[in-house]
Simulated assay, not measured.
Amino acid sequence: MPVAPPVWTMTRALVLTGVLLLVATSFWSLQLEWRALLTQDALSNAGEFLSGFASPDLSAPMLVKVGHAALETLSMSALGTLIAAVLGLLLALPASGRFGKSLEVTTGLFLNVARSIPELVWASMMLIAAGLGPFAGTIALAAHTTGVFGRLFAESLDNSPPEIEASLRINGASATQAFLYSRLPQAFPQMLSYTLYRWENNIRAAAILGVVGAGGLGQMMKYHLSLFQMSSAATVILAMLLLVAAVDALSFSLRRWLVR
Protein backbone atom coordinates (compact mmCIF):
# COMPACT_ATOMS: atom_id res chain seq x y z
CA MET A 1 0.00 0.00 0.00
CA PRO A 2 1.59 3.35 -1.04
CA VAL A 3 2.55 5.72 1.72
CA ALA A 4 1.40 9.33 1.44
CA PRO A 5 4.27 11.85 1.26
CA PRO A 6 4.84 13.98 4.36
CA VAL A 7 2.80 17.16 4.56
CA TRP A 8 5.87 19.35 4.78
CA THR A 9 7.21 17.85 1.52
CA MET A 10 3.98 18.58 -0.31
CA THR A 11 3.93 22.12 1.09
CA ARG A 12 7.48 22.80 -0.09
CA ALA A 13 6.63 21.43 -3.55
CA LEU A 14 3.57 23.67 -3.77
CA VAL A 15 5.55 26.73 -2.66
CA LEU A 16 8.33 26.00 -5.17
CA THR A 17 5.79 25.53 -7.95
CA GLY A 18 4.11 28.82 -7.05
CA VAL A 19 7.44 30.67 -7.10
CA LEU A 20 8.36 29.23 -10.51
CA LEU A 21 4.95 30.20 -11.90
CA LEU A 22 5.36 33.70 -10.50
CA VAL A 23 8.78 34.08 -12.15
CA ALA A 24 7.48 32.80 -15.48
CA THR A 25 4.48 35.13 -15.30
CA SER A 26 6.76 38.06 -14.53
CA PHE A 27 8.84 37.48 -17.65
CA TRP A 28 5.71 37.11 -19.76
CA SER A 29 3.90 40.19 -18.40
CA LEU A 30 6.88 42.60 -18.61
CA GLN A 31 7.43 41.93 -22.33
CA LEU A 32 11.17 42.55 -22.07
CA GLU A 33 12.87 43.37 -25.36
CA TRP A 34 16.30 41.81 -24.84
CA ARG A 35 17.31 42.28 -28.48
CA ALA A 36 17.03 46.07 -28.11
CA LEU A 37 20.06 45.98 -25.79
CA LEU A 38 22.28 44.58 -28.53
CA THR A 39 21.34 46.80 -31.46
CA GLN A 40 24.01 48.90 -33.13
CA ASP A 41 22.46 52.17 -31.97
CA ALA A 42 22.16 51.00 -28.36
CA LEU A 43 25.77 49.82 -28.21
CA SER A 44 27.02 53.00 -29.89
CA ASN A 45 25.10 55.26 -27.53
CA ALA A 46 26.23 53.30 -24.48
CA GLY A 47 29.85 53.41 -25.60
CA GLU A 48 29.69 57.14 -26.25
CA PHE A 49 28.14 57.75 -22.84
CA LEU A 50 30.67 55.58 -20.97
CA SER A 51 33.63 57.12 -22.80
CA GLY A 52 32.89 60.38 -21.00
CA PHE A 53 33.81 58.71 -17.69
CA ALA A 54 37.24 57.61 -18.89
CA SER A 55 39.05 60.74 -17.66
CA PRO A 56 37.86 61.80 -14.17
CA ASP A 57 38.52 65.34 -13.02
CA LEU A 58 41.32 65.10 -10.44
CA SER A 59 41.98 68.81 -10.01
CA ALA A 60 42.50 70.10 -6.47
CA PRO A 61 39.26 72.17 -6.30
CA MET A 62 37.21 69.21 -7.49
CA LEU A 63 38.82 66.82 -5.02
CA VAL A 64 38.13 69.24 -2.17
CA LYS A 65 34.45 69.44 -3.14
CA VAL A 66 34.19 65.67 -3.49
CA GLY A 67 35.92 65.14 -0.14
CA HIS A 68 33.48 67.46 1.60
CA ALA A 69 30.52 65.73 -0.04
CA ALA A 70 31.92 62.31 0.92
CA LEU A 71 32.18 63.37 4.57
CA GLU A 72 28.61 64.65 4.36
CA THR A 73 27.42 61.31 2.98
CA LEU A 74 29.36 59.41 5.65
CA SER A 75 27.92 61.61 8.40
CA MET A 76 24.37 61.16 7.09
CA SER A 77 24.69 57.38 7.10
CA ALA A 78 26.42 57.14 10.48
CA LEU A 79 24.05 59.50 12.29
CA GLY A 80 20.96 58.03 10.62
CA THR A 81 22.06 54.52 11.59
CA LEU A 82 22.83 55.55 15.17
CA ILE A 83 19.44 57.23 15.64
CA ALA A 84 17.70 54.21 14.12
CA ALA A 85 19.62 51.80 16.38
CA VAL A 86 18.51 53.65 19.52
CA LEU A 87 14.89 54.00 18.41
CA GLY A 88 14.85 50.45 17.06
CA LEU A 89 15.98 49.04 20.40
CA LEU A 90 13.36 51.06 22.28
CA LEU A 91 10.61 49.89 19.91
CA ALA A 92 11.88 46.30 19.91
CA LEU A 93 10.91 45.92 23.56
CA PRO A 94 7.15 46.33 23.04
CA ALA A 95 7.41 44.63 19.62
CA SER A 96 8.78 41.51 21.31
CA GLY A 97 5.68 41.31 23.52
CA ARG A 98 7.22 42.42 26.80
CA PHE A 99 4.44 44.96 27.49
CA GLY A 100 1.33 43.10 26.37
CA LYS A 101 -0.23 41.84 23.17
CA SER A 102 -2.00 45.06 22.19
CA LEU A 103 1.19 47.12 22.35
CA GLU A 104 3.04 44.38 20.48
CA VAL A 105 0.56 44.52 17.60
CA THR A 106 0.53 48.34 17.51
CA THR A 107 4.32 48.62 17.56
CA GLY A 108 4.68 45.88 14.96
CA LEU A 109 2.29 47.71 12.65
CA PHE A 110 4.25 50.94 13.07
CA LEU A 111 7.53 49.18 12.30
CA ASN A 112 6.00 47.55 9.22
CA VAL A 113 4.90 50.94 7.90
CA ALA A 114 8.27 52.57 8.66
CA ARG A 115 10.33 49.98 6.80
CA SER A 116 7.89 49.47 3.93
CA ILE A 117 8.34 53.12 2.85
CA PRO A 118 11.61 53.37 0.84
CA GLU A 119 14.30 55.86 1.79
CA LEU A 120 13.66 57.93 -1.34
CA VAL A 121 10.01 58.39 -0.39
CA TRP A 122 10.97 59.32 3.18
CA ALA A 123 13.52 61.79 1.78
CA SER A 124 10.93 63.36 -0.51
CA MET A 125 8.61 63.90 2.44
CA MET A 126 11.39 65.22 4.65
CA LEU A 127 12.53 67.64 1.95
CA ILE A 128 9.09 69.21 1.99
CA ALA A 129 9.21 69.55 5.78
CA ALA A 130 12.89 70.40 6.34
CA GLY A 131 14.09 71.70 2.97
CA LEU A 132 17.10 70.68 0.90
CA GLY A 133 20.21 69.38 2.58
CA PRO A 134 21.64 66.50 4.59
CA PHE A 135 19.20 66.93 7.50
CA ALA A 136 16.33 65.57 5.42
CA GLY A 137 18.48 62.68 4.22
CA THR A 138 19.54 61.79 7.76
CA ILE A 139 15.96 61.73 9.02
CA ALA A 140 14.87 59.69 6.00
CA LEU A 141 17.55 57.06 6.66
CA ALA A 142 16.69 57.00 10.36
CA ALA A 143 12.96 56.59 9.69
CA HIS A 144 13.34 53.64 7.32
CA THR A 145 16.12 51.94 9.27
CA THR A 146 14.20 52.26 12.56
CA GLY A 147 11.54 49.99 11.09
CA VAL A 148 14.20 47.50 10.03
CA PHE A 149 16.04 47.56 13.35
CA GLY A 150 12.87 47.32 15.41
CA ARG A 151 11.92 44.10 13.65
CA LEU A 152 15.42 42.58 13.70
CA PHE A 153 16.10 43.52 17.31
CA ALA A 154 12.74 42.14 18.45
CA GLU A 155 13.50 38.83 16.74
CA SER A 156 16.96 38.77 18.35
CA LEU A 157 15.39 39.22 21.78
CA ASP A 158 12.75 36.56 21.07
CA ASN A 159 15.38 34.06 19.89
CA SER A 160 17.61 34.48 22.94
CA PRO A 161 17.53 31.49 25.34
CA PRO A 162 15.08 32.30 28.16
CA GLU A 163 16.59 30.01 30.80
CA ILE A 164 19.06 32.54 32.23
CA GLU A 165 16.43 35.24 32.54
CA ALA A 166 14.03 32.80 34.19
CA SER A 167 16.75 31.71 36.63
CA LEU A 168 17.42 35.31 37.64
CA ARG A 169 13.70 35.93 38.19
CA ILE A 170 13.44 32.84 40.38
CA ASN A 171 16.34 34.08 42.49
CA GLY A 172 14.64 37.41 43.20
CA ALA A 173 15.79 39.69 40.37
CA SER A 174 13.25 42.15 38.97
CA ALA A 175 12.06 41.93 35.38
CA THR A 176 14.24 44.88 34.40
CA GLN A 177 17.33 43.47 36.10
CA ALA A 178 16.81 40.05 34.54
CA PHE A 179 16.44 41.63 31.10
CA LEU A 180 19.51 43.84 31.44
CA TYR A 181 21.75 41.09 32.79
CA SER A 182 20.59 38.15 30.67
CA ARG A 183 18.40 38.71 27.61
CA LEU A 184 20.01 41.94 26.37
CA PRO A 185 23.67 40.78 26.69
CA GLN A 186 22.81 37.59 24.81
CA ALA A 187 21.18 39.45 21.93
CA PHE A 188 23.62 42.39 21.84
CA PRO A 189 26.30 40.83 19.56
CA GLN A 190 23.70 39.98 16.94
CA MET A 191 22.15 43.44 17.25
CA LEU A 192 25.56 45.04 16.76
CA SER A 193 26.18 42.88 13.70
CA TYR A 194 22.83 43.98 12.25
CA THR A 195 23.72 47.61 12.95
CA LEU A 196 27.06 47.38 11.14
CA TYR A 197 25.48 45.64 8.17
CA ARG A 198 22.74 48.25 7.88
CA TRP A 199 25.38 50.99 8.09
CA GLU A 200 26.92 49.53 4.94
CA ASN A 201 23.53 49.68 3.23
CA ASN A 202 22.88 53.21 4.45
CA ILE A 203 26.15 54.41 2.91
CA ARG A 204 24.80 53.40 -0.48
CA ALA A 205 21.35 54.76 0.32
CA ALA A 206 22.80 58.10 1.47
CA ALA A 207 24.67 58.43 -1.82
CA ILE A 208 21.42 57.86 -3.72
CA LEU A 209 19.31 60.17 -1.54
CA GLY A 210 21.37 63.12 -2.75
CA VAL A 211 19.74 62.67 -6.16
CA VAL A 212 16.51 64.11 -4.73
CA GLY A 213 18.37 66.98 -3.03
CA ALA A 214 19.39 65.46 0.30
CA GLY A 215 23.03 66.51 0.00
CA GLY A 216 26.24 64.52 -0.20
CA LEU A 217 27.78 62.76 -3.16
CA GLY A 218 24.43 61.97 -4.74
CA GLN A 219 23.53 65.62 -5.08
CA MET A 220 26.91 66.34 -6.68
CA MET A 221 26.47 63.47 -9.11
CA LYS A 222 23.01 64.63 -10.13
CA TYR A 223 24.30 68.18 -10.68
CA HIS A 224 27.21 67.17 -12.91
CA LEU A 225 25.22 64.59 -14.86
CA SER A 226 22.46 67.10 -15.56
CA LEU A 227 25.11 69.39 -17.10
CA PHE A 228 26.73 66.45 -18.96
CA GLN A 229 30.00 67.08 -17.13
CA MET A 230 31.06 63.45 -17.36
CA SER A 231 34.60 63.87 -16.05
CA SER A 232 33.33 65.51 -12.87
CA ALA A 233 30.60 62.88 -12.51
CA ALA A 234 33.27 60.17 -12.90
CA THR A 235 35.18 61.66 -9.96
CA VAL A 236 32.05 61.58 -7.81
CA ILE A 237 31.35 57.95 -8.77
CA LEU A 238 34.91 56.96 -7.90
CA ALA A 239 34.51 58.66 -4.53
CA MET A 240 31.29 56.69 -3.94
CA LEU A 241 33.04 53.42 -4.75
CA LEU A 242 35.98 54.19 -2.47
CA LEU A 243 33.71 55.27 0.38
CA VAL A 244 31.55 52.15 0.13
CA ALA A 245 34.63 49.91 -0.07
CA ALA A 246 36.19 51.56 3.00
CA VAL A 247 33.02 51.21 5.08
CA ASP A 248 32.54 47.61 3.91
CA ALA A 249 36.09 46.75 4.97
CA LEU A 250 35.68 48.46 8.34
CA SER A 251 32.35 46.76 9.00
CA PHE A 252 33.71 43.35 7.98
CA SER A 253 36.69 43.76 10.31
CA LEU A 254 34.47 44.77 13.21
CA ARG A 255 32.15 41.80 12.67
CA ARG A 256 35.12 39.42 12.52
CA TRP A 257 36.41 40.91 15.76
CA LEU A 258 33.04 40.46 17.45
CA VAL A 259 32.81 36.74 16.72
CA ARG A 260 36.25 35.92 18.10
Rank of each mutant, 00 (worst) to 15 (best):
175 A>S: 07
175 A>T: 07
175 A>H: 12
31 Q>L: 06
125 M>W: 09
61 P>A: 11
163 E>D: 07
82 L>V: 11
174 S>Y: 07
209 L>M: 09
221 M>R: 04
160 S>Q: 00
170 I>W: 13
22 L>P: 04
158 D>W: 02
233 A>I: 08
6 P>N: 08
252 F>V: 11
229 Q>M: 09
71 L>R: 11
127 L>W: 15
128 I>H: 08
18 G>Q: 07
219 Q>P: 00
40 Q>R: 11
123 A>T: 11
186 Q>S: 02
146 T>E: 11
185 P>I: 05
124 S>E: 15
36 A>V: 12
214 A>F: 14
143 A>Y: 03
81 T>R: 00
169 R>A: 06
161 P>I: 01
150 G>S: 12
50 L>Q: 04
207 A>Q: 02
164 I>L: 10
173 A>C: 01
117 I>M: 05
63 L>S: 01
36 A>D: 10
8 W>M: 13
172 G>C: 15
17 T>R: 03
64 V>K: 14
245 A>S: 10
59 S>D: 06
217 L>K: 02
166 A>N: 10
37 L>F: 12
138 T>A: 14
210 G>D: 09
52 G>F: 05
68 H>N: 15
227 L>Q: 14
52 G>E: 08
237 I>D: 06
4 A>M: 15
194 Y>C: 05
134 P>L: 01
103 L>Q: 07
163 E>A: 03
1 M>S: 06
246 A>N: 10
119 E>A: 06
226 S>Q: 13
19 V>I: 12
249 A>D: 08
231 S>I: 08
102 S>F: 14
248 D>P: 12
18 G>T: 13
206 A>D: 03
16 L>F: 01
149 F>M: 10
231 S>F: 12
255 R>K: 14
14 L>A: 08
84 A>N: 06
114 A>Q: 03
116 S>E: 14
9 T>C: 10
154 A>F: 01
62 M>C: 05
167 S>T: 13
142 A>I: 00
255 R>D: 10
75 S>I: 00
256 R>C: 07
233 A>G: 07
196 L>F: 13
150 G>F: 00
199 W>E: 02
54 A>F: 00
115 R>F: 11
193 S>M: 10
250 L>N: 04
209 L>G: 01
77 S>D: 04
191 M>P: 10
101 K>N: 15
52 G>H: 06
103 L>N: 03
205 A>E: 00
129 A>I: 12
226 S>P: 11
147 G>V: 06
